[in-house]
Write a protein that binds this DNA or RNA. Sequence first.
DNA 1: TCCGAAAGTTAGCCTAGGCTAAGAAGTGTG
DNA 2: CACACTTCTTAGCCTAGGCTAACTTTCGGA
Lengths: 150, 150
Amino acid sequence: MRRTLAPRPLPPAEDQAARFARQREADRTATAEDYVELIADLLRADGEARAVDIARRMGVSQATVTATIGRLQRDGLVETKPYRGLFLTDAGRDMAAAAKARHELVVQFLIAVGLDAETAEQDAEGIEHHASEAALQAFERFLAARKAAG
Amino acid sequence: MRRTLAPRPLPPAEDQAARFARQREADRTATAEDYVELIADLLRADGEARAVDIARRMGVSQATVTATIGRLQRDGLVETKPYRGLFLTDAGRDMAAAAKARHELVVQFLIAVGLDAETAEQDAEGIEHHASEAALQAFERFLAARKAAG
DNA sequence: TCCGAAAGTTAGCCTAGGCTAAGAAGTGTG
DNA sequence: CACACTTCTTAGCCTAGGCTAACTTTCGGA
Ligand SMILES: [Mn+2]
Ligand SMILES: [Mn+2]
Ligand SMILES: [Mn+2]
Ligand SMILES: [Mn+2]
């Protein structure tokens, strides 16, 4: 009986490179996802999404929000009416809806596997951006099975 | 019986800001973790870790590796002997061991909840950096219970 | 109505992490 | 042992996403 596991061989270099590349891609879209999700939440809850509120909730300066919103606008996700708040384009609404659904699913899944609610919220904020469609489907299956067994 | 769930209220602004701040912090350390983990893997598998191999496996240019290694060196994680490869400091070895353990755990966990192995490897590469200690413990408990149940 | 507070923008700065192109420095083989 | 090839570094560029300080614009209450 062996004590130590045989170390797994390194994956092929190209495969590993592809994984890192996809991860870098996910990192690049994460900020946009979090912003549009928050804008959608504020629009629903408050009827408006102001830059100052986004700054407070993101924990970031107003100047940073201005710059980030500029990129979101450039990318066709957001429209602005100064002093009248921010609005989502169709593309922005789509992204927000997807981000929100993903966020909720990841939170529920983490709670279902035994994580406390507050930590689940914390970790979901990062994990959500790195869970593939296949992973989200696995999480959904898990929740459905858990509920059926309930 | 209600059809639609009541939308959850927004969390307190300070809580939400703290979550985003922690996520940004995790993003900043992710590159270092991936590099030292890879260096440790190469040292074990090949007996040396050369910049050119890291570039190939990270999917990045050699110039980028030079710059990143410079930061790791500045931060006391890595030592270099030009043309003789890279070496980890004690701190680097510690970080690599932790990163490796976390990586393996996340992969095994994702497979256990029904994800295919290749996607598990892909998603783990990102998720590993956002799973808190509490989450990792929950994943371990889940795997242990799964094993006990057979 | 006006004037101070709040909200937003602008300017100027920074670091991380990417890139290409060009040059320097080892390595190993004929 | 020389020279071609590989490896590594340097220089110069870029974008995202942070910051502070100073300015402008709008809003609302006295
Ligand atoms: Mn998030
Ligand atoms: Mn989110
Ligand atoms: Mn990783
Ligand atoms: Mn990893």
